[in-house]
């Protein structure tokens, strides 16, 4: 969602967000609880097919799944030695399929669509929860990730430019201070754009 959305018009892109979210949850539960290697193998094939149908760039997809490989690199040998290689392989398969499926959802669904889905889901509770507000909260959180990443990058660059090494504190203080300034500015912008309550 944070710049991960890959534009397209495939069936996967067009499928209703709530349906996608529901199927994603269902599949993850099924894969997570099934002890049958065939189920997990089958799920892997289906997920691969979905990636092909969605036509997301291979590189972007790989970047999404790669981090979990690092964890598996450590976890598989440990579990293999402790409780057998079949169980280790099953665990690896489950994690891979679940992460890939979640990545596919992220790459084919816009933030707006996710927000609307959230709001639909929260509708029964509207007496207690302002769905619009929750939606805005989620949107701002997502928006702030690149904003804060930029601030961290600039602070690190400034540090490098001045040739100082410094402690963690020397990075944390300017990052927090600048984030607070950015938050103020963002608040002003929200007010100016009519979200003043």
């Amino acid at each position: 969602m944070i710049g991960l959305y890959s534009p397209g018009n495939s069936a996967v892109h067009r499928a209703p967000t709530l349906l996608k979210l529901f199927l994603l949850s269902l599949c993850v539960v099924l894969i997570g609880t099934s002890p049958d290697p065939w189920v997990i193998g089958g799920a892997a094939v289906v997920v691969l097919l979905l990636f092909v149908v969605a036509r997301v760039p291979v590189q972007a997809a790989a970047a999404q799944v790669a981090p979990i490989l690092l964890i598996l690199l450590v976890a598989v040998p440990i579990q293999g030695l402790l409780s057998g290689w079949l169980i280790a392989a099953l665990m690896a398969g489950r994690l891979l399929v679940a992460v890939a499926l979640a990545a596919l959802f992220t790459m084919t669904t816009t933030v707006t669509a996710v927000l609307e889905a959230f709001q639909t889901l929260l509708r029964p509770f509207r007496r207690f929860i302002d769905a619009d507000r929750v939606g805005l909260l989620v949107a701002l959180t997502i928006r702030c990730i690149p904003l804060v990443a930029d601030i961290v990058r600039e602070v690190l660059e400034a540090r490098t430019a001045r040739g100082t090494q410094g402690s963690l504190l020397s990075i944390a203080v300017p990052v927090v201070v600048r984030s607070l300034y950015a938050a103020d500015a963002l608040g002003e912008a929200l007010i100016a754009r009519g979200l003043d309550d």
Partner: peptide, 14 residues
């Protein structure tokens, strides 16, 4: 209202 720094004015991801 248009601010100096558009980064602070952009609210949504796309």
């Amino acid at each position: 209202f248009i601010f100096t720094n558009p980064d602070n004015q952009i609210v949504m991801p796309t």
